[in-house]
């Protein structure tokens, strides 16, 4: 019991898991939550807006007015929740290369197949499972 508690604490203390669980892909989607729980849309919005956590606005623009510096390399995130289902959005964030092998969008929940990763990030996913769920929860709310 004590050990389980310690493990649980450790997991929350380092949310970026070294060994990501392998999510179940069905067609072009990951239907089930990576954590077994729904994410939090408000936290997801903060992750998407943050330049060093989500990095999304490096490439994308989105309906986040307070962030003046946005990208135009990728389509706007506005309306993403109308275009894609929750499961499709989840796969897109986890590993977009499953949908488009040449995509330049980083795989946010994958550690394999990368070259010369900086030591501080080696073996780590860009987002934790919980953060992916928060981002997905936010994207789902982006209806046109």
């Amino acid at each position: 019991m004590r050990i389980l508690l310690v493990i649980a604490l450790l997991l929350t203390a380092c949310p970026v898991a070294a060994q990501p669980v392998t999510p179940q892909i069905v067609d072009d989607a990951i239907p089930a939550s990576l954590t077994g729980r729904p994410g939090d849309a408000a936290r997801g919005r903060a992750i998407v807006a943050n330049r060093s956590t989500g990095l999304c606005l490096l490439c994308h623009s989105g309906p986040i007015a307070e962030e003046r510096f946005q990208g135009d390399i990728a389509p706007s995130l506005a309306g993403a929740g109308s275009r894609w289902s929750e499961g499709q959005l989840r796969l897109r964030i986890v590993d977009g290369s499953r949908l488009n092998a040449d995509t330049i969008m980083p795989a946010y929940y994958r550690t394999g197949g990368l070259q010369r990763v900086a030591r501080a990030f080696e073996g780590k996913t860009i987002l934790s499972a919980a953060q992916v769920e928060d981002v997905v929860a936010y994207l789902v709310t982006l209806k046109d």
């Binding site: 606005l57 490096l58 990208g71 390399i73 330049i104 980083p106 010369r116 860009i126």
Partner: peptide, 26 residues
């Protein structure tokens, strides 16, 4: 031309394919 780093990007992706476009406003 080789992709590298946790973000898995190459110099060419930014400086050839997306030159002139905006990266976080730059």
């Amino acid at each position: 031309r080789r992709r590298q780093g946790q973000l898995n990007l190459s110099c060419a992706i930014c400086h050839d394919d997306n030159a002139g476009k905006k990266l976080a406003g730059i």
